[in-house]
Nucleic acid binder design. Sequence first.
RNA 1: GGGCUGGUAGCUCAGCUGGUUAGAGCGCGCGCUUGAUAAGCGUGAGGUCGCAGGUUCAAAUCCUGCCCGGCCCA
Length: 948
Amino acid sequence: MSVDYKSTVFLPRADSFPMRARLPQREPETLRAWEDMDLFAKVREVSEGREKYILHDGPPYANGHLHMGHALNKILKDVINRGMQMLGYDAHYVPGWDCHGLPIEWKVEEGYRAQGRDKDKVPVTEFRRECREFADKWIGIQIEEFKRLGVLGNWEKPYTTMSYDAEAQIVRELGKFLVGGGLYRGARPVLWSVAEKTALADAEVEYHDHTSHTIWVRFPVVQAGAPALDGARILIWTTTPWTIPGNRAVAFSPNSTYVVIQVKAAGENDLVVPGERLAVAKDLLEQVAHDAKLTDYEVVAELSAAELEGTVCAHPLRGQGYEFDVPVLPGDFVTMEQGTGFVHVGPGHGTDDWLLARKHGLEIPENVDDDSVFRDNVPLFAGTRIYKPDGKEGDANARIIEVLKGAGALMQQGRQRHSYPHSWRSKAPLIHRVTPQWFISMDTNGLRDKALAAIDETDFYPPAGKARLRSMIETRPDWCVSRQRWWGVPLPLFVDRKTGEPLRDPAVIERIAQAFEQEGGDAWFDSDPKRFLGDDYDPADYEQVRDIVEVWFDSGSTHAFVLEARPELKWPASLYLEGSDQHRGWFHTSLLESAGTRGRAPFDGVLTHGFVLDAKGHKMSKSLGNVIAPQDVMSEKGADILRLWVVASDYSEDLRIGEEILRYQVDAYRRLRNTLRYLIGNLADFAGEERLPESEMPELERWVLHRMAELDSVVREGCRRYDYMTIYRELYHFCAVDLSAFYFDVRKDSLYCDRPDSTRRRACRTVLDKLFDCLTAWLAPITCFTAEEAWWARGGGPEESVHLRTFPEVPAGWRDAGLQAKWDKVRRVRRVVTGALELERAEKRIGSSLQAHPTVHIADSELAEAVADVDLAEICITSAVTVSGEPAPAGAFTLDDVPGVAVVPELAEGSKCQRCWQVLPDVGRDAAAPDTCGRCADAVKHLGVAVG
RNA sequence: GGGCUGGUAGCUCAGCUGGUUAGAGCGCGCGCUUGAUAAGCGUGAGGUCGCAGGUUCAAAUCCUGCCCGGCCCA
């Protein structure tokens, strides 16, 4: 009997964009399509001549698979690049890799050990070749992994620090410091790995717990600064007995008070002599007495720090080869946390010590050799060893303790577990020792000041990065750029055998650079020195340095051999973007390198992101089993999910990731995808002629346009400020709350049932078309795969890829604050209606809201005015609404936060239209379309559909 | 141990220079729809704003200490 009108309803058709996204399968297909069309080249083509935006890639290290930190870093870079590109810039992104250095060298050595080969019997260049191959292999792997994340860049021509041109330029950069006098050879304490026989960079050091000897040693006063010290002994405490032979001073805190005590008795401690007088810090007296088991003592004097000045001690081993004086000096680094308040100073074994010694012109002994063995000239201890190659303790400490005991200098000994520096590779404990190393001076040529000034000229995101970098530059010591290893750029230095001075000749440097450009750094080892020295110098007069350049200088020079060398880029970079650890890493060294050679930073802006933590906010680690690999997310959920996670998170802090968090992103993704799908479905047969000028549109449409104008600002501003979290939140809210829950829901009736030529439907579809245009563009930097899929699903636009577009221009006229204010009020009234209907549903009086005909009593004049010319039935999705100015009857439905509105729900009169399901009085009047309302009957007839 | 940084509902985030019952979305519970359906709509319940003090008429917002996390450094 009843007619099936479904075929006359214009339901969305979105087969080309299914909800089942299958991202793990589809994304690789999209990638292939991009490769086939050479998307990156095309993007470059369309942006030719535009202002450049250059995000210079901080090079990841070429070993191992990507982890979540890499994924975060590269996705963030990609989102920003794409955003700037769509903002209208030419954002040419060149990825790069850091290739030299110990980790790779170590890996290759591990292979040697496994094969029983001896590294020392392999020619340097063969070893280096294997390192190069190792790096090459991992670059290839990482390229594929980065591409899978959706990262768009110049993968055809990435940069590497081991390319010949890079190695050559690194030599030239170092040459600038050399010729300018900023590079010098110095002896100063470095953290030295006995196991690897090399100095380590700060970044190569890890702190682990380590059990050390602790000793309390007495230094006899030979020249008292204050009478109370006459004949007394100064007590020091240290965890490194082996530094005692290197002692040259004792330091005290200039802000503390000290005491002299007389020992009366000591229990179970025959190393203390009753009657002797000892000087210690007042605050630490009790602790010292307890540790040294002084059972009875008396404070005989109290001394200010100033009274200590001028005091001189003897070395505790005076008479056995240690005859020099040991001055007692003020030192800011002395703390009252542990020990005695006096710190023994070994200028060769600590930075504080070294600085103090330099300040007071003390000797800086080089007591220990590469193997941590005391040299022949060290009395009593020559030949003893601090650490064995496997990191175990040698015989030095025991011997020193024994000798101190014999000399009556030792007062007490023990052990303490504490944090201690270790090598990141061998995990062996390190020592501080002075070695001849090459340094870039922070002060020659005003490098520190230049760098600090450059920081002030730089924009930091978030701003806190500025202070962080600044404080590091302010306090850092000279930059040690030499390493005693094989895999790196050779230090291009010849040292005059007579003077010990390096040859500072630009021509020599340039000859070295030329050779490296042709053959790479291997040329250094393969060539006769004459090749570099030319005819001007006699090779016999010079020693060729065999050290290599530390890797941070390599990466600090990328701006020179990438940004300056490639005409398609620009110097300085628009932005450097890395994790917050790079304040001491790449940001830091790039700044120093560039400030030293070019007088300014190689970047206009610096952006730092936090670290990826697990769901509970803890560091990811294999041992905790809380590691989430990007490859797994990729194969289970898809890159767009990971990309959503990145932009939904506040990258300025640490980011958490976990199963629940990812599931949340999957849900969010589905919502966004469904929004696109709804647009595509309702625009399936949209023709350009259908478009309606904005001026002829209903207010509801113009309200959507207004919202689009707002979103446009959010997107553009967010891109400029790298604030994607806000973009994401606003976009999502717009899709879920404004569109899906309101606009789409309200306009469903019109889209499905109105005549295609009706103004209302045409206006709506015009807006849907604009929405599609905007949303695909706005989402393109974020969900790059899905935005493209949607773009293609509609048959594509004028551009063959969504990524060739820029953000659509949104006419300023779309903004209408008055309309916004009015429709906010309309929606407030709507909420009261939907609330009332919910009660009706609970009471089972209605199911669909179309069954209702509420009466809305509005006492609030502003709300009444807002609603006056609005079809509330349409907006509330009911079949009818009666608006009344009469006072509401008792029991009418109200909401506390919408005063002045009361709703009395009733059932709609009439019968249900079989086409639009509204309940209307005029259903069934037109025999040509039985059981339909007037609007639908007209639509059906217009369609010319045979009914019945 | 030091510097920097953070700790707001189950989750991701808003809450500006202190001022009514701390917000949003998601998730969850309940209901509707079954013509966005591996969808959509409505609605409800969730928070001692890390803890403890203090300043103030008033603090999630300011101060101090502590606890827990992170980065960097020693």
